[in-house]
Amino acid sequence: MTALSPLTSKVLTAMFAVLLVVLCSLLSDCTTLDRDAHADALAAPFQLHREQVKTEHFVLTAFVRMTRADQPLTVYIEGDGLAWISRTEPSADPTPRMATALALAAADPTPNVVYLARPCQFTPMALNPLCAVPYWTSKRFAPEIVASMDEAVSQFAAKVPGQPVHLVGYSGGGAVAVLVAARRADIASIRTVAGNLDTEFVNRLHDVSAMPESLNPIDAASRVAMVPQVHFSGADDTVVPPEVAQRFVRATGGRCAQANIVPGLDHSGDWAGQWPAMLPLAPVCKAR
């Protein structure tokens, strides 16, 4: 029997991951999908290795490829995942069915890429005594959540001392990216994809409960106003419509932030397929 070449093996593994996504989209109930296996199959062909990151409040799951200490670090932050089974029923496990931010990280060819799952995603609940439904519903942007994500970014940034740190966040991960950046002085850029950058506005838009125990990223807009940033929105996104990014850009003053509307994509569209073409659109500040 002829052995598969390493390249063929990688291609087959990637195809398996894609097939899982397609099958999930066709099923009426995707909760039976092995979400951990799907993430591992998606990450493996791109040398993204699973790690656990211990922080003060939570143990986080990361997928990591860091090969050059003299190069910048890009950190991808996952969205809210499977937070709700229905409009009124929260999930027992917020691990995403399809980890969009992980797919974005896999499409990034740079040497230092880290994917951070949100607290209580992918990590066994036994390792996280604090994990409970509020931390992926009403408290998903609570100060302790942001502090844990910030602590994880610091642990990886320490491995590339002095190098720029870039943050990329998908959906609710965009909110976390802004809130983490507002706490730090080493963030070189922020990019969000379908980012929930004004949680109060989005909650009112969908007529759902307010989140008084969570931070709202638009309240931190002035603190990140001088960080180069670009916020991508899908033209067909009805979950987090383009107006959300536009409101956030206005709140920053617009010198270093820009909103970019991508035709033909909705909230859960094929962002990873578009990502290689979007990566070169580097955030910049306008000249005074």
Rank of each mutant, 00 (worst) to 15 (best):
R50Q: 15
Q52M: 11
Q52A: 10
V53Q: 06
K54F: 10
H57V: 00
F58Y: 15
V59K: 03
L60N: 03
T61W: 14
T61I: 09
T61M: 09
T61N: 00
A62F: 03
F63H: 13
R65Q: 00
R68I: 03
A69W: 00
Q71Y: 15
Q71N: 04
P72Y: 14
P72A: 08
L73G: 04
V75P: 01
V75H: 02
V75Y: 02
E78N: 11
E78I: 08
E78W: 13
G79F: 15
G81K: 09
L82D: 01
A83P: 01
A83L: 01
W84I: 04
I85P: 02
E89K: 12
P90R: 10
P90G: 03
P90N: 10
S91T: 06
P94L: 10
P96L: 11
P96H: 09
R97P: 03
R97M: 02
M98I: 14
M98W: 11
A99N: 12
A99I: 00
T100H: 03
T100V: 15
T100A: 11
T100G: 12
T100E: 11
L102P: 04
A103S: 14
L104T: 06
A107G: 07
A107F: 11
P111T: 05
P111G: 07
N112E: 08
V114G: 01
L116R: 02
A117K: 07
R118P: 05
R118T: 01
P119K: 07
P119F: 13
Q121T: 03
P124E: 12
M125C: 01
P129L: 12
C131V: 00
V133D: 03
V133E: 15
Y135W: 15
W136T: 05
W136Q: 06
S138I: 12
K139I: 01
R140D: 12
I145M: 15
